Simulated assay, not measured.
Amino acid sequence: MTLVIKICGLKTSEAVEAAAAAGADMVGLVVFPPSPRHVDLAHGRSLAALATGRLQVVALTVDADDALLDDIVAALDPDWLQLHGKETPERVAAVKARFGRPVMKALGIAAAADLARVPAYAAVADRILFDARPPKDATRPGGLGRAFDWDLLDDLDPGLGYMLSGGLDPANVAEALRITRAPAVDVSSGVERAPGDKDPQKIAEFVRAARAAAAAAPAVARPRA
């Protein structure tokens, strides 16, 4: 299976072009004002239009109500909706039913106990995104440049469709893939010059490193118990 690569938190046409040129599969547009990567819907519309046909567009929201999601879908026409807040499995199912689009649900991970929620969400979401659980004083649930212990994913159902996120960058994505054999990876702060300012060179380096690691996986991946 080909590795899926998502570059998240894009704010400029330069960043979209860089993701496309590097060979990424998805771009994430954040609609959440507390984030330094937030885009308003008018600007997001232009970025989504630039990506359409070349990259899948993911609209990232945090505990958004139906009215906001209506506006986001109308403006961005995203391929995916990413729910990155405290949405329950019931809310995930309701969003998927209302909008008829694949839904990706982010789950914060810090300890093995955090994985107990996976079956309930996996039953309703099209993909689970594992991110580092934010500290209690965090003002946003992701994009913090924090990694979690990838070994915690050892006992996942091998058939689970998930994406690995949290503190990934060009220097560590190969190790992350060696340990987890993740079918998809997501990067945001790891390819930035500053929060919200994507670096085209780092995007290219990340995609190149991830693709090389995925190609080498059968030979170098750690045996699983």
Rank of each mutant, 00 (worst) to 15 (best):
S35P: 03
P36R: 04
R37M: 02
R37C: 00
R37Q: 01
H38W: 05
H38Q: 03
H38I: 06
A42Q: 14
H43T: 15
R45Y: 06
R45I: 06
S46T: 15
L47R: 13
L47Y: 06
A48L: 13
L50D: 04
T52V: 13
G53H: 07
G53P: 02
R54E: 12
L55M: 12
V57I: 11
V58I: 14
T61E: 01
D63P: 08
A64P: 04
A64G: 01
A64F: 05
D66F: 14
D66V: 02
A67K: 08
L68Y: 08
D70W: 13
D71I: 09
A74D: 15
A75V: 13
A75F: 10
L76D: 03
L76V: 12
L76T: 01
W80T: 14
W80Y: 15
L81Q: 02
Q82P: 04
H84L: 07
G85R: 00
K86I: 02
K86P: 00
E87Q: 07
P89L: 10
E90W: 09
R91I: 12
V92G: 00
A97S: 11
R98E: 04
P102E: 06
P102V: 10
P102N: 09
K105T: 01
G108F: 09
G108M: 04
I109S: 00
I109D: 00
A110K: 07
A110V: 05
A111K: 12
